[in-house]
Amino acid sequence: MTERRVEEERRGFSRRAFLQGAGGVAAASSLTEAVHAAQDPASEVQRMRGPEEVELRVNGGTLPATVEPRTTLLDALRHRVDPPLTGTKLVCGEGACGACTVLVDGRPMYACMLLAADVVGREIRTVEGLADGDGLSPVQEAFCEKDGLMCGFCTPGFLMSATGLLERKPDADAEEVRRALSGNFCRCGTQPHIFEAVAEAGRRLREGGR
C-alpha cells in the first residue's frame, strides 16, 4: 500500500469529506458570490475554491505547490511539493502528538492544523532544513550522541521544537526545555535522553556553534 493510501485510510472519511469538495461541485454559493460582487475583478483576492498554484517558502527556498484551500501544510509538504518533504510526520493528525511540528517564522506549530494557504509568504522550516549538507545542526548532533531517539518517528518534531526553543533562547533551563517539548510525544519513552540532548545542544550553541 502506498504511503498516501495508508494516510488516506487512516484519516478515514471525515477529513476527506472536508478536504474534498471545492473542485468540481456546486456553482457559486451566496458566500462566493458576495466575495465576487464586493471585489474589484483585478484585485488579488484569494478566494480559493479549487486547486491553485502557490509558492511556499520552505527551508530558504521557494517551492511551487498545487494546493486546495483545505490542504493542510502537512499534506502540502508531504505530497504536493517536488520532491516531497516527508521528514515531517503525520501521526495523530489533530494537534496532539507533535510529529508534524515545523517552524513558521521561527515558531513551532503543528503542520496538521495549518492550512497551507494560510502560510503562503511565511518562512517555513522543516527537519530537512536543519543540516547544512552533510553537517548536522548542533541539535541533531546532540540527539545522535545522547541517543535521543529509539524508533525515530517522533524525532523530526522534537528536533523542530528544540530548534525553535534554542534559537530563541540558547540558555533555556531544564524546566524551559521540558515545557518547550511538552507538545511532542515519544511513545518509546526516550524523553530523558532527549532532554539531555537539548541541554547539550544549548551548551554548544552558547559556545558559538552554528
Partner: peptide, 25 residues
Amino acid sequence: SAPRVTVPRSLDEALAALAGAAPET
C-alpha cells in the same frame, strides 16, 4: 453543497465575504 474555504487577505475582504455568508459558515 460542497465546502469551500475562503482565504481573505484583508479585513475588508473578510467582511465582504461574510456579508453574504450562509448562516452555518
